[in-house]
C-alpha cells in the first residue's frame, strides 16, 4: 500500500510523465541468432497464444487472425491479429518489435499494452525462446482480418497510466526463489511462471489489478461467473505428480472428472507439449509453498 502512496506522491511531484514512458528492447542488443523452429512451436504451445489469438470458431489453431473478446473489470479487450499478414497482422514487425511487445509490453509505436495480453508473465521468458517463437509465428498462415478496437472507459483508456502499473508489476525476476531446486523443478518453474502464465488465472489480484504474489497460485475468483479458479498449491491440490501430468495431457482429474472452463483451452495446449515438460510442471506444482 505504501508503495502506491509513494508512487502517487511522485506522480503529483510531476515526475509521473517521465516514469510512465515506455521501455523497448534495442535491435542492436539482439545479436545473431539461429532460430530453432521446433522450440518456437513448443513455446507457442505452452504460451497458449492460440487460446486468445486464433480466430474464434476456426478449427485451425495456427490461424492467428484474432477477434476474440475478453471481458474484464477494466473493459472489453479485443484480441488483435498477430498472423504474418503485413497490413493487419505483425508481418512487417522486426524481431526487436516483437521482443519489446513480449518482454516489455510495449508496442512498436511506444504505446503500453494492456495486461489482458499476459506479458507480465511473458516478461520472464528467455530472449532466445522469444526469438524462436517469432521465427515460428512467421511460418504460420496470414489472415487479413482487421484487428478490432478495445472497448474501455476512463480512466483505463489513459494509456500513459499503464506505465505506472508496469513499474509496479512488470519484472523479469522469477516469482519464487528456487535456485537450489532440481533441474526438473526449475524447468517447471520457468514454464509455469513465464510462458505458461498459469498465475494470471490461478493467483488472486490486488486492488491495482496486479497479481498478489504473496498468494501465488492460491486460487482466485473466476471472471466467467460465480465460481472459483482452484488453488493449485499443495495446500489444496493433493494429486500425485503423475496425476497432475496426466491432467495436463488428457484433461482428466484422478476421479475422471473432465476439465472445463478456461482450463479446457489450456489443456488443448499442454497436451501438445513433450511429456517431460508436463512432468516438469507437475514437479514444480508439488514444490511451490502451500498457500490458502
Amino acid at each position: 500500500m505504501w508503495r502506491y502512496l509513494a508512487l502517487a506522491a511522485l506522480l503529483a511531484a510531476g515526475l509521473g510523465w517521465y516514469l510512465t514512458g515506455a521501455e523497448r528492447i534495442d535491435a542492436e542488443a539482439l545479436g545473431p541468432h539461429d532460430p530453432d523452429l521446433a522450440n518456437g512451436e513448443r513455446i507457442f504451445d505452452i504460451g497458449g497464444c492460440a487460446s486468445c489469438h486464433a480466430v474464434p470458431g476456426s478449427e485451425d489453431r495456427h490461424l492467428l487472425g484474432g477477434g476474440r473478446r475478453l471481458a474484464t473489470p477494466f473493459g472489453t479487450f479485443a484480441v488483435p491479429n498477430i498472423s504474418p499478414d503485413p497490413v493487419h497482422g505483425i508481418g512487417a514487425w522486426s524481431e526487436a518489435d516483437f521482443a519489446s511487445a513480449m518482454l516489455k509490453g510495449t508496442a512498436p509505436d511506444g504505446r503500453h499494452y494492456y495486461p489482458a495480453f499476459p506479458y507480465p508473465s511473458y516478461a520472464r521468458m528467455r530472449l532466445d525462446d522469444v526469438r524462436d517463437l517469432f521465427a515460428f509465428l512467421r511460418t504460420l498462415p496470414p489472415s487479413d482480418r482487421p484487428s478490432p478496437a478495445h472497448e474501455i472507459g476512463f480512466p483505463f483508456s489513459v494509456n500513459r497510466g499503464l506505465g505506472l502499473w508496469k513499474l509496479l508489476h512488470l519484472s523479469p525476476e522469477p516469482v519464487l526463489d528456487m535456485a537450489d531446486a532440481s533441474e526438473r523443478v526449475r524447468r517447471g518453474q520457468y514454464l509455469v511462471e513465464g510462458p505458461g502464465h498459469c498465475g494470471e488465472c490461478h493467483t488472486p489480484r490486488d486492488i491495482t489489478g496486479g497479481l498478489d504474489l504473496s498468494r501465488w497460485l492460491a486460487g482466485a475468483p473466476n471472471p466467467e461467473g460465480e465460481g472459483r479458479i482452484p488453488n493449485i498449491t499443495p495446500a489444496r491440490l493433493r494429486w500425485s505428480e503423475a496425476d497432475i501430468a496426466y491432467y495436463l495431457e488428457s484433461g482428466f482429474t484422478p476421479d475422471y472428472d473432465s476439465a472445463g472452463g478456461g482450463m479446457a483451452a489450456v489443456i488443448a495446449n499442454t497436451s501438445r507439449l513433450p511429456a517431460e515438460d508436463r512432468a516438469a510442471i507437475a514437479a514444480y506444482l508439488k514444490a511451490v509453498p502451500p498457500r490458502e
Partner: peptide
C-alpha cells in the same frame, strides 16, 4: 466421446471449489 466432456464442461460448467 470424451471430447464431449471437455466441450460441454468448457462452456456450461463452472468449478466452485
Amino acid at each position: 466421446v470424451t471430447a464431449n466432456c471437455k466441450a460441454c464442461h468448457e462452456a456450461y460448467r463452472i468449478k466452485k471449489n
